[in-house]
Every structure is written in structure tokens, then in C-alpha cells.
């Protein structure tokens, strides 16, 4: 499913990117050249998805662009439940990300769309509240299955990771943009919560044994030109 969405995104990116037509007649200068801009974005994809999963994620970013170079700062707070057949917990925390992206899209005239590729460094600080442990016996001993309630807290957990991101930002109407992004993430060390390995990290999503993660989403942003 995700690969399908990513393929669609790739096709979209290719469709938006212009064909390199004859430029000898008109010398066009990038509207970004020597000019700065500020972009403020809010991740609506994460907001909607998190509420669908009975949690909440607020993520916003600030981009400072100079020419085709973009410096980005992202911050987010999260409260997300995580469920497994044998346990359920609530992850609560915040994260920030700092990144550099390069815009490859050659804009024409007054347009300020972007197709970027960049890298980010991210850190998260979070807590776990382990609410429930459930042990299932196979049939015909199901009546021995039990659930142990009682919140066990794992506080002050930390994690950091790197991201490789590609994003497409297309203008919807006057200075308001729709951002579509895809990220590959790498977390060299999965943090421990007591005897548990952290199964979920705010900003990263579910951790993996392979230390790699994948994300995609969409945001709305507003561009301030100078």
C-alpha cells in the first residue's frame, strides 16, 4: 500500500517537474536567486491520522530559504497509544528536527513551487505509560488467559535519528501550498524503556529491528517572500 502511494507521489513529482524546453530565447532567472523566503508549515496529515488512532500529533515547521537552499526547523508534540496483542501503552513526548534541503525545481515566472531533497537530524524526548499486559493461553486453556492492569511509567526516554526526505510543494492559491513528502529514516540505536525496547518513538513512528523507518505525509504551508 505504501509503495503504491509512493509510486503515485513519484509520478506526481515527475508530472509537476517541467520538460526542459528550449531556453535559448528567454533567459529566465530563478525567482529564488539571491532572494530569501520564509515558509511556515503545519502537518495536517499527522494530525488527522493521529486522531483516527485516538492520539494527537501537532507538528509544524519553519523553512528559511535562500535561492534554492532551504534550512528547516521542525517541532512536534505527540500523544499516541500503541497496542500489541500482549500489551498496550501510551507514548507521550516531543521532538525537533533540523534539516537542509535543496530545491531542484526550476520555477517559471512568478511561481514558487518546490521539489526538494534533503537530510534532517532529529531528536525526541518522551515517556511511556505501560497500561496493560495481556497473556493468552491457547485453546482449550483460554480460561487461564489474563490481563494485568496498572500503569507502569518509563520516563525521560530519548532517541535521535537521521532522515532523508524528498518533498513536493505545490501552490494551491496565493502563497498557500500543499506539501507532499516521503522520508527514509535511520535510528542507529533504539532506546530502552526498562526491559522493553522502545517500540514507538514520537516523530519516528514504530521502531524496527533494522533501525530503518519510512514515512510519508502531507502538510499545508504558507510562504512569505522578501
Amino acid at each position: 500500500m505504501r509503495t503504491f502511494i509512493f509510486s503515485i507521489l513519484t509520478l506526481l513529482a515527475l508530472a509537476v517537474a517541467p520538460a526542459q524546453t528550449d531556453t535559448s530565447a528567454v533567459k529566465k532567472t530563478s525567482p529564488f536567486a539571491g532572494r530569501m523566503h520564509l515558509r511556515l508549515g503545519y502537518d495536517i496529515g499527522k494530525k488527522i491520522w493521529s486522531h483516527y488512532r485516538h492520539g494527537n500529533i501537532d507538528q509544524a515547521y519553519l523553512n528559511l530559504g535562500y535561492g534554492n537552499h532551504i534550512f528547516e526547523l521542525t517541532a512536534g508534540t505527540e500523544t499516541m497509544p500503541y497496542t500489541h496483542p500482549t500489551f498496550s501503552l501510551v507514548s507521550e513526548g516531543r521532538y525537533w528536527k533540523a534539516g537542509y534541503h535543496y530545491n531542484f525545481y526550476d520555477n517559471w515566472g512568478d511561481m514558487h513551487n518546490e521539489i526538494t531533497l534533503g537530510i534532517r537530524y532529529a531528536r525526541a524526548a518522551f515517556d511511556y505509560r505501560l497500561d496493560q499486559i495481556h497473556i493468552d493461553y491457547p485453546a482449550p486453556y483460554d480460561h487461564w488467559s489474563y490481563t494485568r492492569n496498572g500503569s507502569v511509567r518509563f520516563d525521560r526516554l530519548h532517541a535521535w535519528w537521521l532522515e532523508l526526505t524528498t518533498a513536493v510543494r505545490a501552490e494551491l492559491f496565493h502563497n498557500l501550498y500543499l506539501d507532499l513528502y516521503v522520508s527514509g529514516k535511520w535510528m542507529p540505536r533504539t532506546p530502552q524503556a526498562g526491559d522493553m525496547t522502545a517500540v514507538y518513538v514520537p516523530g519516528f513512528y514504530r521502531t524496527n529491528v533494522s533501525h530503518f523507518g519510512f514515512g510519508l505525509g502531507y502538510a499545508l504551508s504558507y510562504r512569505f517572500g522578501f
Binding site: 500489541h84 496483542p85 500482549t86 500489551f87 499486559i133 495481556h134 497473556i135 494485568r148 526491559d195 522493553m196 525496547t197 517500540v199 514504530r206 521502531t207 524496527n208 529491528v209
Partner: peptide, 10 residues
Amino acid sequence: EEFLSKACGF
């Protein structure tokens, strides 16, 4: 209960 891994849980 012992936590084994993300896949196995407890």
C-alpha cells in the same frame, strides 16, 4: 511476564 521484542511483546 518478560518482554522479548517488538514483534513478540510479552
